[in-house]
Amino acid sequence: MACRNGVAFSLVSLALTSLLFASQANAQAAGYVSPYCVKALDKPFCSEVVKVADTWQEAITEVLSETIMQSTLAEPIMASLLKTLPSTTDAKLKDDIGSGCRKSYNDALQTLKEVEELLKTGDKTKSANTKLSAAMSRLDDCEDEFKKIPMPTEFATFYQGSKKLLSTCLAVERTRPDLV
């Protein structure tokens, strides 16, 4: 099982890295920024994620789907990673980090699924942005779990990828036609 989690982590890292390099190469070559990404911090990355979208609905669905997929991988990656912490790390601290990050990602995932449902029904209350911001805060809670020990590099890469995707969701959501 640990091998499978390691493989999943490696595949996710490879996919995010490839997407990042491809987005930078495409954006530099074409100078193109998707209209759904004008508010994104990383416009080339955002443009690559939503490149197949012709409408705002397609763009937000694409980036939200990617973010949900990334969030579902957190638990097995975290479980595998906790086993790699130094043996001198207190067992209770390992458990606290594991359960805290698991809860953070699970809460974020639940919120992302709520956003998905809101968007399917037209988000009449226009609360998707608030919920996406709440999901971002939940991910920050996972980072807070690493107060006493540094976040392992492998998980930090995964965590930063999660934050980047969620930030991209927020940026695309903010270009919603009825909000602009």
Rank of each mutant, 00 (worst) to 15 (best):
A134E: 15
G31H: 07
V63I: 13
T130N: 12
L109M: 01
L112M: 04
A135Q: 05
L179Y: 07
S87L: 12
A156T: 08
Y105N: 00
K94H: 00
L109R: 00
V7R: 14
Q24H: 15
S99I: 02
L93K: 03
S87Q: 10
T84Y: 07
A171R: 01
L139Q: 03
C169E: 07
Q70M: 10
F45W: 06
E48S: 13
A2I: 07
D54H: 13
K51I: 06
A91P: 03
C169F: 03
A134N: 13
S10N: 15
D54F: 15
V180T: 10
E117S: 09
Y159I: 04
T157V: 10
D42K: 15
L11P: 05
Q160S: 09
V38I: 14
D96I: 01
L139C: 02
L132F: 08
T67G: 01
E117C: 03
S87H: 15
K163Q: 09
A74P: 09
M151P: 10
E154K: 12
A53C: 12
T61I: 00
Y32A: 15
S104L: 03
K113G: 02
S167R: 07
N129R: 08
V52I: 11
D141N: 11
E145I: 05
D96M: 02
R174C: 05
T168F: 06
L119G: 00
A135I: 04
K164T: 14
S18T: 06
A156I: 04
K103F: 14
T175I: 01
G6Y: 05
A91K: 09
D178I: 06
V50S: 00
E66S: 12
L118M: 10
T61Q: 15
I149E: 10
I149P: 07
S10R: 11
R174H: 11
A29R: 15
R4V: 15
E143R: 15
F9T: 13
A2D: 14
Q70Y: 05
M1P: 03
D107K: 01
E117V: 04
A128R: 03
E62I: 08
T89P: 00
T175S: 06
K51F: 11
S23F: 02
T153P: 03
G100Q: 01
S13Y: 06
A29I: 14
L118R: 15
F45C: 03
L11W: 12
T121N: 07
C46L: 13
C142V: 03
G98D: 11
D54A: 13
A171F: 04
L85N: 05
S71I: 01
A30P: 09
V7D: 14
F9S: 14
C169R: 02
L179C: 08
D95H: 06
Y32V: 13
G6N: 09
L170W: 01
K83T: 10
N129W: 05
E62G: 08
E173Y: 07
K39A: 15
T130F: 06
